[in-house]
Design a protein around this nucleic acid. Structure first.
Length: 270
DNA sequence: AAGGTGAACAACCGCCGCGCT
DNA sequence: GAGCGCGGCGGTTGTTCACCT
């Protein structure tokens, strides 16, 4: 009974030695990333690297991969982490994607050891501010980015499912039942629809590893009958904007949130 | 100098979604 | 459509180090 172990019993655990790092780096340099089980198996056979695939992957992505920054998180980066965390919650991978050279593990650790304690102490992190002017400025920034403390966890969808949703709804304001947030009403707004199905997709969308292929996007554009009118304001046009144009997903998400708040406060026309 | 304590960081564990068969 | 394996992700734990008494 019980879960099948993902790794053989005779694997190494604990801290990685320099030799293991070198073995893994050499292997990845030759064979490339991915297929971590094979990396582990082949490296075991060729150089005695007794590590499971997951461990290899984690070691490579968090420490060995070229371009990884270690330590010395700047004030700007800290500020960014705080803002993104307010927006996304504990979506460390997404947060890490917005911070070049930083890994999800490092950000998660940094949050757990530094920022969460600052939050507990002060209600908001201090943001490493010393001067009164900066303090006021940072307080303003905190007010500006204050969103729900725990963003709803988005549902991941595949590119195919995504196109079906778009096709079925033609970016209408009525989400399909399978895509609704629990407890959301039938009059769900477009932004609900967006966040519901697409919050993570939007944030991943600008990444080079985006899972929505360009052809799929073109197909979606065709199906939706998109045009490039920037002045349009209907939900479908808004959808078009999100789908067809180059955009900053985070800014878009912030924009959506701001619109929701404005709508809630009756400030839509401001 | 030695022991205790907490912070920081590295790594493991288990769950989940996706793609393949 | 079901089953399986793999990769990705987030939570948690273990270890190391620095500081304090």
């Amino acid at each position: 009974m019980g879960r099948r172990p993902c790794c053989p019993k005779e694997i190494n655990k604990g801290a990685w030695s320099r030799e293991e790092d070198e073995t893994l780096s050499k292997y990845v340099a030759i064979h490339g990333e991915g297929k971590w089980q094979k990396v582990a198996q082949n490296a075991v056979m060729s150089a005695g690297l007794k590590r499971c695939g997951k461990s290899c992957r984690q070691r490579w992505l968090n420490y060995l991969k070229p371009g990884i920054k270690r330590g010395d998180i700047s004030v700007d980066e800290e500020d960014m982490i705080i803002r993104l965390h307010r927006l996304l919650g504990n979506r460390w991978a997404l947060i890490a994607k917005r911070l070049p050279g930083r890994t999800d593990n490092e950000i998660k650790n940094y949050w757990n050891t530094n920022l969460s304690k600052k939050l507990q102490k002060h209600g908001t992190p201090s943001l490493s501010v010393s001067s009164p002017q900066n303090k006021r400025h940072e307080e303003e920034k905190i007010k500006q980015v204050h969103v729900a403390p725990e963003a709803p966890r988005p549902r991941r969808i595949s590119a195919v499912e995504y196109s079906k949703i778009v096709e079925n709804n033609r970016c209408s304001t009525t989400p399909s039942p399978s895509n609704k947030v629990e407890g959301s009403s039938d009059e769900a707004s477009f932004s609900d629809f967006l966040i519901d199905i697409d919050q993570s997709q939007l944030l991943i969308g600008d990444d080079s590893n985006s899972k929505v292929p360009q052809m799929e996007e073109e197909h979606i554009n065709k199906q939706v009958g998109l045009t490039n009118s920037p002045s349009s304001s209907s939900p479908s046009d808004h959808c078009h904007h999100l789908l067809a144009e180059k955009f900053d997903p985070l800014e878009t998400l912030l924009d959506v949130e701001l619109k929701r708040m404005a709508s809630f406060l009756g400030l839509e026309n401001d």
